[in-house]
């Protein structure tokens, strides 16, 4: 099914479409959530909430505002961030390490079937440190361009162009 048609079906409340969407995006969404909450069972819980939200809010998605993937990404990051700010989470968790997605990849042994994660891991490791930071802030943590520029002490325009170069590198590894 075409992506646009699939989204439309989802918006009309079609459960089969929902299953397909889940299949397409759940792993990536899970990865985003996990990289923020750092706990498997909490990440699972948030993932479920996120997909319930996707089901409920699907009619409000509008392709003129952005990509469907971006829409999901925002829901996931917000839900995960809300979670780590919640009281119950703070009481249970020790201090979160300052690791980023690279460290998660490093620590991982069993990988999904969908992605050649071992190959990916090797390449991601080879990314320049600044690239790892840019991708971590902008993609995984959902910082704005401005927040990233402040965090890395880098001019706004440079954030944009430098990040482009990083993603180009990543694409060269992922899409072969």
């Amino acid at each position: 099914m075409q992506q646009d048609a699939l989204i439309l079906e989802l918006q009309n409340g079609n459960q089969r479409a929902f299953e397909r969407i889940y299949h397409l995006y759940s792993e990536s969404t899970y990865g985003i959530i996990y990289s923020i909450v750092r706990d498997e069972s909490i990440a699972e819980e948030v993932l479920q909430d996120v997909f319930l939200k996707i089901w409920d809010k699907a009619p409000s998605y509008n392709s003129n505002k952005g990509r469907f993937f971006t829409w999901i990404l925002n829901i996931a990051r917000n839900a995960a961030i809300d979670k780590i700010r919640s009281k119950s989470f703070k009481n249970n968790q020790q201090n979160l390490t300052s690791d980023n997605f690279v460290d998660i990849l490093e620590a991982k042994t069993n990988f999904s079937e969908a992605v050649d994660a071992i190959g990916l891991k090797k390449y991601v490791k080879a990314l320049k440190p600044v690239c790892k930071k840019l991708i971590d802030y902008l993609f995984f943590k959902g910082y704005t361009q401005k927040e990233t520029s402040e965090e890395l002490d880098m001019p706004l325009g440079t954030v944009k162009t430098r990040n482009r170069i990083c993603i180009d590198k990543l694409r060269a590894m992922v899409i072969k």
Binding site: T29, Y30, L105, K108, S112, A117
Partner: peptide, 9 residues
């Protein structure tokens, strides 16, 4: 999508 999927536990 692939990058974040690879970080799923």
């Amino acid at each position: 999508l692939n990058l974040s999927a690879a970080t799923a536990p």
